[in-house]
């Protein structure tokens, strides 16, 4: 198995788990998914995958997966690893995934649009992800031209999409942030509101559910029409940097005012994670949040990349795939605990 995209650590990787860039594209003259027949869907998928699969360099890096030919568990695992949307996991005509060998590029064909090109990276790296996305976008664009097809585009509205909210650049930049101190301090609602005023959406689970979902928040641009790709990326980076800065300040403050409480929390989580014999996904997520905090503060020596890969490896379907059979929940918790003990260093 080749190296995976998350086995690297990028800028601010201790707080920014991942960055994703997504471009929405459609082909002119073929109805969008939802109004196309099977033949048209297959044609769209073939036209869009040809440029990748006909080029020697990219062909060796990508696998074409027909969504309908995958098992339920395989599809669920793709969702858990955020490579495809839950919507795409229900097989539709012409539903094809082009997946790079490091799982860092996932191109969904016939999802909401003919193409959703996604590039993932570790840490805060929207510019690098965009560069890769543009290279592939140009390659596909040219491939379409050589097959007598072209992207649906209008001078005023930009790239034409099935949902008018994605018009313009068709770009969505999103960064997944781990913000345990801001969440615990009850600051996220206010911060999300001010981000909203800048046209940036903050999505997350506030209040009771926060901890069980690992204190994770998704920051992304809302509008993709009227500004350039660079401007959209810069805005997301600005808000994300601000949130990271605030989270770091809150951590510093907590270390100064109540170091024992913080250390206790981190080492309790580490103790449970590295010794428990049964562990549910939500318990693991909550504990991994504390463990990650400990690594970020230098209290625990561990590779952040290990935490990143554990985050998806421990999910139900992905765990079942690794074990090689569908696991009932109780058995899953045992395998999960075992996996965690194997990969996480004891503090």
């Amino acid at each position: 198995m080749s190296a995976q995209w998350f086995e690297h650590s990028g800028d601010h990787a201790d707080i920014a788990l991942s960055t994703r860039v997504r471009l929405a594209r459609n082909i002119e003259g073929i109805p969008f998914p939802g109004r196309q027949n099977k033949e048209q869907a297959v044609k769209a998928a073939d036209l869009l995958s040809a440029p990748i699969l006909e080029n020697k360099v990219t062909a060796s890096r990508f696998t074409r997966k027909e969504m309908a030919s995958l098992s339920d568990t395989e599809r669920a695992s793709l969702v858990e690893r955020h490579l495809v949307s839950p919507y795409f996991a229900t097989p539709a005509p012409g539903g094809v995934l082009l997946l790079s060998s490091d799982n860092g590029i996932a191109i969904m064909l016939n999802e909401e649009d003919h193409m959703r090109l996604q590039v993932l990276g570790t840490g805060l790296c929207p510019e690098a992800c965009m560069e890769t996305a543009v290279r592939l976008d140009n390659m596909i664009d040219e491939g379409l031209t050589s097959h007598g097809a072209k992207y649906a585009f209008s001078e005023k509205l930009g790239y034409l999409t099935r949902c008018p909210t994605n018009l313009g650049t068709g770009l969505r930049v999103s960064v997944m942030l781990h913000l345990p101190l801001l969440a615990a301090g009850g600051q996220m609602t206010a911060l999300a509101n001010s981000a909203g005023k800048l046209g940036i959406a903050v999505r997350g689970i506030y209040g009771e559910g926060t901890k069980e979902h690992g204190n994770l928040f998704q920051i992304s641009n809302q509008s993709s029409l009227g500004t350039t790709e660079q401007e959209q990326i810069a805005k997301v980076r600005e808000v994300v940097s601000g949130l990271i800065e605030r989270e770091r300040q809150a951590r510093k403050m907590a270390l100064e005012t109540a170091p024992n409480a913080l250390e206790d929390k981190v080492f309790r989580a580490a103790g449970l994670l590295t010794s428990a014999r049964k562990m549910s996904a939500s318990e693991a997520l909550a504990l991994l949040s504390d463990y990650r905090l400990g690594v970020s503060l230098g209290l625990i020596q561990a590779d952040i990349a290990v935490l990143n890969s554990l985050q998806s490896q421990m999910m139900p379907a992905t765990l079942s795939l690794a074990v090689g059979r569908t696991l009932p929940a109780a058995e899953r918790d045992i395998f999960r605990a075992e996996l965690i003990r194997r990969v996480l260093p004891k503090p």
């Binding site: 003259g29 073929i30 109805p31 005023k156 509205l157 350039t228």
Partner: peptide, 29 residues
């Protein structure tokens, strides 16, 4: 339904697009 719909139904979509984007026009790639 398709790219063509944006022309065919431009009158229908205009107030909705204005609500989403004001007078903004595409400036990207």
């Amino acid at each position: 339904g398709c790219a063509r719909c944006y022309q065919i139904f431009s009158n229908l979509l205009a107030p909705y697009l204005a609500k989403l984007y004001g007078k903004a026009v595409h400036t990207g790639r």
